[in-house]
Design a protein around this nucleic acid. Structure first.
Lengths: 208, 208, 208, 208
DNA sequence: AATGAATGAGGGTTCATTCAT
DNA sequence: CATGAATGAACCCTCATTCAT
């Protein structure tokens, strides 16, 4: 049994530890906030010893950066999966992408808190900004392209792709903030309706 | 007059120092991030001595809370002014309110950074959450009421007030994030167009 | 009225303030302990402003030294009064002196606490030591002389004056400690009996 | 042997460090007084770094409490040893116990200073009071019981156990104060004589 | 790979002292 | 004489990092 657990060898073990520590980091940030999260807390949360973080990440800075990267990668993975899972038509894809941001696995109290914790430091941390930027650009581009495609397909002459795309991409982030600030009164269904209503209004032929 | 303005009268002086320290706090948070902002930095930024913050705010916690409150009050003041300045009709008011969030004095790099810095701690700080919550509720309600009024006035039978309001209030926060993450590529005009396009689409009779 | 209050003029006023501050100091030390007594506390206790102590005593050190001196003077005054009030015979004087240390005005919770607070610093503060020393010497000498006188008077051949005097002077300080540590269970009558029993045993002819 | 003594075994090491720090604390308190003893001083005295105290005691308060407890335990240990080492008869035991308080290892300049330093804070620190109280109660009870036993054994009809016990227990503390205040002029032999004279006077059959 | 004792810099806070009013 | 805002050193404590085991 022990042999099986370890069978993946050194490298895998290392990677597993890193993931474990990143998970602990997210828990701590969500629970105590970024400025109250110490390396010691993270280690305790992971059930390991003081020195472990520096052993695996060399520095706290590094751990945080890797945590953000993990968060972004995780999102991107789900994003691509949602795209693939939704058939070939642009309208379906766009809806899938928008709904992703309201899925419980994404608009999860802990994850949202961590996102905002990092955004809170973006201005003073170029590294964080770069990571966030990259993700945003990708996200915006996909949405803008899908909108353009739908417009072309539906021949919506009076719809500006940029406007719809901006509205859509902005909205979900704003919804995350609502959820962060008042999780009780946040209404996921109304949020979904706001999105679909908007899509219907701009692209009536595609979203009956 | 000048004498009055400069008057070092006891109470006036106190309030002025507090404001001065809050301004310094915002600068520091915007420049270095919340978790790297020390009381010493704030004092230095204000050109005063170490002990000054505890003298006027009793604790760092207090200073931060007051800073957030100041930020919220400042916003609310501008908000009310925008409402008053925009004539009696709901359509004009709604537009004014939406455009407020894109005015340079509001979507200012420093202020936005500070907003996000506080939002980053909202999950773990009930006091912050309460302040943000209060402001959000007020904002949402005003927008929702204006939408309802416009709908009634224009007899827009197929428009759900809640959906438009949600879309509008969410959008601006999302735009702030875009601006925070990539201030260079943020396009204020496009943002404004996204908003007006949306208003036009939902309420064509009111926004020609 | 105000004129009357001030009628004693500058010097008297100054002395009154000093006494007021010393009284406040004793209260603070008794309540919070020497190491938690700040100049600010003292000023607040006296209902005056921050700077007042340095104005009247120049430094905290000075205030404390003066407080100790006041305590010692106060004791010495009572001591001399007790001596004078008790008739001409040595036996009466000795009893009076011993009973003084158990009088409520002397073995008072606050005063005792302050005595011990200063004794706690005696080792590291030569000034305090000198003041305490002086008082002790005086006290010991008077008691020793009275004992010698009684011995001569009663022709107690087998009583060493030094031994009785040492026993007597040591006892009362020890009793103060008992009182300090467990004021509830301290029994003033038993303490008095211990003293009178001892006097009777050494000097049976004088203390029937 | 040497290896065992030096053994850096985890748990042993921890206890040793604590003892080392407590010893340093006593030195500092004796040298500089309680109110001038900082955590930094203690660490320096121990030849270790700033953070060491909080690492091993969590807080300064804790360190001080543990120091007092150590002092009390140390005394109690010597007390019990003195009792055991002095044969079965009450008279011998009582003498042993009284003389303990004058032994150089007990009436040591440093220890006495530390005792008084803590007594100086007793009024404002319930925890200190409890520890001192406990020790005092134990001490008083033992002395009172021994006196009662001797009285019964010697049939001393006119001796009140409570009076002798009170006199004896009070005396030694008062002697400690004399020693603290004027170590030069303190005469250990005279102190011993005062005690034995008193014992002889009350219990002539037992202390020839 | 993992531990946890130890370090020492830096944090928030307290406070004796100064000084303009 | 009296105030109280302001200072800045020193305090206790936290924590990222190092390192012997």
């Amino acid at each position: 049994m022990a042999a099986t657990a370890r069978s993946t060898g050194r490298t895998a073990s290392r990677e597993r530890r890193r993931r474990q520590l990143i998970a602990a980091t997210m828990k701590c940030i969500a629970r105590n906030g970024m400025s109250s999260t110490s390396i010691g807390d993270v280690a305790k949360e992971a059930g390991l010893s003081q020195g472990i973080v520096n052993l695996h990440f060399e520095s706290k800075d590094n751990l945080l950066t890797e945590t953000l990267r993990h968060l972004a990668d995780d999102y991107k993975t789900r994003f691509n999966k949602a795209l693939e899972a939704s058939g070939p038509d642009a309208a379906g894809k766009l809806l899938a992408v928008m709904e992703l941001d309201l899925r419980p696995s994404v608009i999860d109290r802990q994850k949202i808190a961590v996102w905002f914790a990092f955004w809170g430091e973006v201005k003073s941390r170029p590294t964080y900004r770069r990571i966030c930027n990259e993700q945003d650009r990708f996200y915006d581009e996909v949405v803008a392209n899908l909108c353009a495609e739908i417009i072309a397909d539906g021949n919506y002459k009076d719809v500006r792709a940029a406007s719809v795309a901006t509205a859509l991409t902005s909205m979900t982030n704003g919804m995350w903030l609502s959820y962060l600030i008042s999780p009780r009164s946040f209404d996921r269904d109304q949020a979904r309706r706001a999105i679909t209503d908007l899509l219907r209004r701009y692209f009536p032929k595609h979203y009956s």
